[in-house]
């Protein structure tokens, strides 16, 4: 794998996909590059999600720098860092039920981080309940993250690089990526939104939606996404039906 897979904006260029995707983007829905102050991310995450006993701030910084330098040293993935990316930390955790973990632990943490950043705004979970309903999507590679999380704190970088992809196109595309590139799920996206709480809030234009691509609801067709509603942040459930929209951004999480 040697040719650059990404365009100048860090978008993973779709190539010969059989599922729905926009070949070109007019870049109408945009995400402002969030701050990536690693000390700030480490301390906020530990304050809100709980301490990462097995990882210091220096360890975190070193591992993020290693992820980014590794991606940049590979001609195929070098372009990914030109796009929006958010370093993230997930303190070690046993997950019995993904939906319960999100509802009871990670979404309240996103809310706390969001309201700390934007006290006048609101966060809401509009999904009508997640407990017992979620599973890991086949082909997403997300199981790697959950296995690792059960043993140690997880460090990674979230790249919403599959802009304007359908969920099945994202699954198709990730198979062509290096093994450490996973489709983004719920816990890692929550961690990214704790790291950059206002990543989806824009005043001078509309932001995209960030999808929990690696997670499915009661059926393959059900997925979830974070979406700004004005100055507010919401989590929605959606029957995506294999369609795509320029408003839908699927994500890649690279672990290190």
């Amino acid at each position: 794998m040697s040719e650059n897979l990404f365009n100048e904006y860090g978008r993973l260029v779709p190539e010969s996909l059989t599922n729905a995707v926009y070949e070109q983007s007019r870049r109408y829905f945009l995400c402002d590059a969030p701050s990536t102050d690693l000390d700030d991310i480490y301390s906020r995450t530990c304050n809100i999600l709980g301490p990462a006993d097995d990882l210091t701030a220096d360890d975190f910084r070193g591992r993020i720098e290693k992820i980014l330098s590794s991606l940049e040293s590979d001609p195929a993935t070098k372009g990914i860092t030109a796009g929006v990316h958010i370093p993230l930390l997930i303190p070690r955790m046993d997950i019995d039920d993904l939906g319960s973990a999100l509802e009871e632990h990670y979404l309240p943490a996103v809310e706390r981080a969001f309201l700390q950043r934007l006290p006048e705004a609101e966060f809401s979970n509009e999904t009508n309940g997640l407990a017992g309903k979620l599973s890991v999507r086949d082909g997403s590679r997300h199981g790697q993250l959950l296995e690792k999380l059960a043993k140690q704190s997880v460090v990674g970088v979230y790249f919403p690089a599959m802009t304007e992809y359908s969920v099945p196109a994202a699954v198709e595309q990730i198979q062509r990526m290096p093994e450490n590139c996973l489709l983004t799920g719920g816990i890692d996206l929550c961690a990214a939104l704790i790291a950059a709480p206002d990543a989806l809030i824009r005043k001078d234009g509309y932001p995209p939606t960030f999808w929990l691509t690696a997670i499915q609801g009661e059926s393959e067709n059900i997925c979830y996404h974070f979406e700004a509603y004005g100055y507010n942040l919401k989590l929605y459930r959606r029957a995506h039906l294999g369609q795509t929209s320029e408003y839908w951004w699927q994500g890649i999480t690279v672990l290190g």
């Binding site: 926009y22 109408y28 369609q243 408003y247």
Partner: peptide
């Protein structure tokens, strides 16, 4: 209508009221 990229499955803004293009 549903397969047209302008109209498509989902967008947050008013197509004819906000999208300059």
């Amino acid at each position: 209508g549903m397969r047209n990229p302008w109209l498509g499955p989902h967008r947050p803004d008013c197509l004819i009221g906000e999208d300059p293009q």
